[in-house]
């Protein structure tokens, strides 16, 4: 195999930007410096002036996306550890996840059509509130573009982490279950880390419902594919 210095450069730059951003966020705690925002911004700032196409960037970095598969396997650990909470509160959590998912799918789809967005863009918007390892295969099943969905998932995480904090001040939520579910269903991974800042219980709830909502949506894919 021929060595391609430019595409190895992208792999090295991606990992370096990620490590740098994680370190910087750990020191400053500034939300705009979190890896979710800073890493894509840094990489785009280098790639756009160089006129790099996605195919060229992806050549040696695409395998990283494949690791999302084993991440899905790892989700078994929080599910198992939170099974007592799940056994106790499953009606509230299940109804919350169902209502939230319905709200997510119908509002994404409805608003996308209202604003006359492209069909493939609209379909890619549908899975945007669930975590990437589930959102990308779901986008594929629905006929959307998985990469575009990953972009929308990122925007959702960035906005959701901010909105969630504001909503907590406005909504009369007395239970940690509701506060955690708000972040886990609404803003996946970014929401879960925000929920951990609110409280330990909120964080655990958010982590659990994030995974379960992803599963729920993925298993609803055949039904959704018929409806949309």
């Amino acid at each position: 195999m021929k060595l391609e210095p430019m595409s190895l450069f992208w792999l090295a730059l991606t990992v370096a930007a990620y490590l740098f951003s994680r370190w910087l966020y750990g020191r400053t705690g500034r939300y705009l410096l979190s890896p979710l925002v800073l890493v894509p911004a840094l990489l785009l700032a280098v790639a756009i002036p160089l006129h790099t196409a996605y195919a060229e960037y992806a050549r040696n970095t695409h395998w990283l996306i494949g690791v999302l598969g084993p991440v899905t396997v790892a989700f078994a650990v929080p599910i198992w550890q939170q099974r007592a909470m799940l056994a106790r509160h499953w009606p509230a959590l299940l109804l919350g996840m169902l209502a939230g998912s319905l709200a997510s799918i119908s509002s994404s789809w409805g608003l996308a059509h209202l604003l006359a967005l492209d069909e493939s863009v609209s379909l890619s918007l549908v899975p945007r509130s669930i975590t990437t390892p589930f959102a990308m295969p779901l986008a594929h099943d629905l006929g959307g573009v998985p990469e575009l969905t990953a972009v929308f998932v990122m925007f959702t995480g960035v906005l959701g982490a901010v909105f969630g904090g504001l909503l907590l001040r406005v909504l009369p939520l007395r239970t940690s279950l509701a506060r955690g579910a708000l972040f886990g269903v609404g803003a996946h991974g970014a929401g879960v880390s925000r929920a951990h800042e609110v409280g330990g219980e909120e964080g655990s709830v958010a982590g659990l419902v994030m995974v379960l909502t992803g599963l729920l949506n993925l298993f609803a894919a055949p039904l959704l594919a018929c409806l949309l």
């Binding site: 894509p40 996605y54 992806a58 390892p133």
Partner: peptide
Amino acid sequence: MLLFFIPALMSLLD
């Protein structure tokens, strides 16, 4: 997890 989905975000280039 974020590191593993960053490459997909770069699809913005296209």
